[in-house]
């Protein structure tokens, strides 16, 4: 492993190329190149900065459209005021709990199912494995899926967020591939020592496959945190079960109505104007956790996409 890392480091060093003699053409190229990346990176960050300064600036100034580049009259009342937004607390609760519970169950299930699929002794193993994998390549369509969930009683029901996500075939494949790369001798010697399948799984496989489990966990957590479609379709009649993104969507729509009113020269009330600030603040609440966690998790995300590329 470490040898591999060294190799990669060495390669990275050379991949950026030997330092070129600075000809004029080369200087121009590098300048244009770096300018492009600076501009693109700026475009990726600035919107979030803009949202942020508008949530911490004086609300009157925000509503007059004065806050453009720098915050003025800094306060955090908007964040505190979110507790008055109807069902916002529920949305936080729903989103946080499904992120934790949904991810944990998915990771455990993927780990165990991935382990089981490596067991050649299983009765008709390859058939059942195919049965699982094939589900990645087709789906019945949105409406049959919805009617199925309706039939199972999982609409307007918190468990509708959790149970369908437990079995994730793609993650099971990733775990299976990873476990197959663990030397079989480890498992064999444990079995000879009398360990049961369960013991082999909890004592040997689980600790050794931590890297892959961490990778699928971060992807699963982000997916749950950003979940919108299932909330929109399944929980339509239960506003107390909306996820954060769904709640934000509702607010954004009321805000675009506000924009329509303003464009047509209609009267705008103070309460309507406030939706803009609330909408920015909810956006920030949704964004900030990901922004905070991302730099630490980046490694796992990048490993994850490479795993996807080499899966068998």
């Amino acid at each position: 492993m470490s040898e591999n890392e060294k190799k990669i480091k060495k390669v990275r060093h050379t991949a950026s190329g030997p330092r070129y003699k600075s000809s004029v053409g080369d200087k121009v190229f590098m300048t244009v190149n770096i300018t492009f990346f600076v501009v693109f990176t700026f475009l990726c960050i600035f919107p979030f900065y803009y949202l942020f300064i508008n949530t911490i600036s004086d609300n009157d100034l925000v509503n007059r459209g004065v806050i453009t580049l720098l915050p003025k009259g800094i306060h955090i009342k908007n964040y505190l005021a979110l507790q008055n937004v109807s069902d916002f607390g529920n949305s936080i609760l729903v989103t946080v709990s499904r992120t934790i519970l949904g991810t944990a169950l998915m990771v455990l299930a993927s780990g165990f199912a991935g382990y089981l699929t490596t067991k050649r002794k299983m009765w008709h193993r390859s058939m059942w494995y195919r049965f699982l994998v094939i589900t990645m390549y087709f789906n019945a369509g949105l409406v049959p899926w919805y009617l199925n969930m309706l039939g199972l009683g999982l609409t307007n029901n918190y468990w509708g967020y959790i149970i369908p996500g437990i079995v994730a075939p793609y993650n099971i494949i990733l775990v299976k591939t990873y476990i197959e790369s663990i030397p079989a001798e480890l498992e064999e010697s444990a079995t000879i020592d009398g360990a049961s399948n369960m013991q082999v799984f909890t004592r040997i496989i689980l600790p050794l496959s931590k890297p892959i489990l961490a990778t699928i966990a971060v992807f699963g957590a982000v997916g749950n945190w950003n979940s919108f479609q299932d909330s929109l379709i399944l929980m339509a009649n239960s506003p107390n079960l909306y996820t954060l993104q769904h709640r934000l969507y509702v607010y954004l729509n009321s805000s675009s109505n506000l924009a329509n009113v303003m464009q047509s020269g209609g009267q705008v009330t103070a309460a309507m104007l406030n939706t803009k600030v609330i909408q920015y603040t909810i956006s920030m609440v949704t964004i900030i956790p990901i922004m905070l966690v991302y730099p630490f998790m980046q490694r796992y995300f990048e490993e994850g996409i490479m795993l996807g590329a080499v899966k068998g």
Partner: peptide
């Protein structure tokens, strides 16, 4: 540049509104 990928489309729309809407 990879951060926006991890924010849902609703957030992207919020960004779009903040940048391109009337106010």
């Amino acid at each position: 540049t990879t951060v926006p990928n991890f924010l849902g489309w609703v957030i992207v729309y919020a960004v779009a509104l903040a940048i391109f809407s009337t106010d």
